[in-house]
């Protein structure tokens, strides 16, 4: 790791001020995205601003048809939260399949979204549920947030403070793990909103990051069942291809994981 200066602000405003004051800063919460790339010297922020212990960034609230998970809440706290399990169990399920126990003890929902890693799990839930990303400056709709692989609508220094999920009628997540990294080789989050809208979002599969899958959404809107997807064909165009899976294989996984997500949906 290159030399860096570590800061631990105690409030959101202090964090933002530190970011503005110092050159080439990066926010750090659990550190499980940033530190590995710093270790491999692929990222070299001069300043890291640790937001992981700011009280206003930690916690889960469910009220008024919305589940709010604050940005620096760890995966472990999310998956074991009664509020999460009661309001959107698919989020608890997704979180329990994310990383490994030690990673879940440190990693945070904010970190999972801010980087828009093409194999991260949470972007699929955020987009499928039509969540709102709250920052220290504004609210951003999920549809406007993910801008392609490793790119988001976040401006320089803008800090995610919470993610607000509208409660769904039904939601499910299923993923096929990458044999080596154990990230999602392909994961699919399906959700039926209380208004009857259906979304199916795949992660890990597409060259452009998290993506909605129109064919699946259409079929599920007509008939919310795994069997409804039997005849759906997913095109391999634009899907990732590597030693662990061809684009054709990933296209198959998009469908199969969608079916299993529907089966698991509650």
């Amino acid at each position: 790791m290159y030399e860096t200066i570590y800061h631990r602000p105690s409030s959101i405003d202090e964090a933002a001020a530190l970011f503005a004051k110092n050159e080439d800063g990066k926010y750090l919460a659990g550190g499980h995205t940033l530190i590995p790339v710093m270790k491999s010297r692929l990222a070299a922020p001069s300043n890291v601003i640790d937001i992981g212990r700011i009280p206003a960034l930690i916690g889960i609230e469910a009220a008024g048809g919305t589940l709010m998970i604050k940005a620096a809440t760890t995966y472990y706290d999310i998956m074991s939260s009664t509020q999460v399990k009661q309001s959107i169990p698919a989020i608890a399920r997704l979180t329990s399949m994310l990383g490994d126990p030690q990673v879940r003890a440190r990693g945070t929902i904010g970190g999972s979204i801010a980087n828009n890693d093409p194999a991260a799990d949470f972007p699929a839930a955020v987009l499928a549920l039509g969540a709102t990303i709250r920052t220290n400056k504004r609210d951003i709709a999920a549809d406007d947030f993910f801008k392609g692989i490793f790119t988001t609508a976040l401006q320089d220094g803008e800090l995610i403070t919470a993610v607000l999920f509208p409660l769904a009628a039904k939601a499910g997540y299923s993923k096929f793990r990458h044999p080596a990294s154990r990230f999602a080789l392909t994961g699919v989050f399906v959700a039926q909103s209380k208004g009857g809208d259906v979304r199916a979002v795949a992660t890990g599969a597409s060259q452009s990051g998290v993506m909605r899958v129109g064919e699946i959404e259409k079929a599920l809107k007509a008939n919310w069942s795994a069997a409804a997807l039997d005849s759906v064909k997913i095109s391999p165009d634009g899907l990732l291809e590597d030693i662990h899976g061809t684009a054709e294989y990933r296209a198959n996984l998009v469908k199969v994981m969608a079916q299993r997500a529907v089966e698991s949906a509650e």
Binding site: P179, A180, S181, R182, I243, H244
Partner: peptide
């Protein structure tokens, strides 16, 4: 291509 545990699949 397989120069780390991200790409070389070790049995878990």
């Amino acid at each position: 291509v397989t120069a780390s545990y991200m790409d070389y699949a070790m049995p878990r």
